[in-house]
Amino acid sequence: MSLLLLIEQVLNGVQFGLMLFLMAAGLTLVFGVMGLINLAHGSLYMVGAFACAAVAAATGSFWLGLAAALGAAAAAGALVEVVVIRRLYNRDHLDQVLATFALILMFSEGTRWAFGSFPLYLDVPAVLAGSVTLPGGIVYPEFRLALIGVGLAVAAVLFWLIGRTRIGVRIRAGEADREMIAALGVDIGRLYTVVFALGAALAGLAGALVGTVQSVQVGMGEPVLILAFVVIVIGGIGSIRGALLGSLLVGLTDTLGRVLLPQAFALAMEASAANAVGSALASMSIYILMAAVLVWRPGGLFGAPA
């Protein structure tokens, strides 16, 4: 395989990883601050994608769609937090899993009822529809390059938000000791809603962006949600840094595994068998990575020891 193709696949892996980061960041924040495991995070991703597709189709503007995705996902997140999630903070994880599993069923069927079972497709905005030639002669779609840019920008803003602003101080204090910051006069209920809506908005953004590259359909959120779980397990729960590193690791392992493993096996066996073994192993590669990290560091790369 040529070096150019390899570099292109690395870019694809980074792009996939950064989109995973948008999902994983929200999940890990919600878990770190509220101690809540939220399976419905994938549904918020789906809400963002559908809002973007619906608004873009109605207005003809991708950018309005993107704004709608952020707004709709944040609003859905805030609503769900106030109505349901709030009652779950003091429950055990089993109750949280079940209640948010119930939310997935309701979101999925509600969306199926509203939009039908057929996938919707989003057009890449005209400004970013072309390709660019990178140094070295790699031709790469502008939109995918933009996704990498957005992912990096969001990561930078999040690091700044958590590390350098007043709300970030409160979020970190909430992770450390929720009774104490409540006693210091911070409205903890509102803080939780804000954090949840922030995570939801990030999920919605990821949904709209990935939905543009792939397709928008019911059930699109759950595979990504489970990958985001793998990311958090690898990175360590509650750590934004871990989520970023874990996302990139998972994105690169998955993308490169799918390309390289069948070719590697082709060196040793005949083509169709190599393809079968290679693709089957590639689909398991990130889980093998996760198992390896667990054996080595059960708490994840940046987590406290479990």
Partner: peptide, 25 residues
Amino acid sequence: RTTGVFFIMITLAFGQMAFYFMVSW
């Protein structure tokens, strides 16, 4: 090797691993 919420996520991930293995085999 893990407990609590980690355990939930990891069993979920291993389940998916088996799923994708059978899909691509």
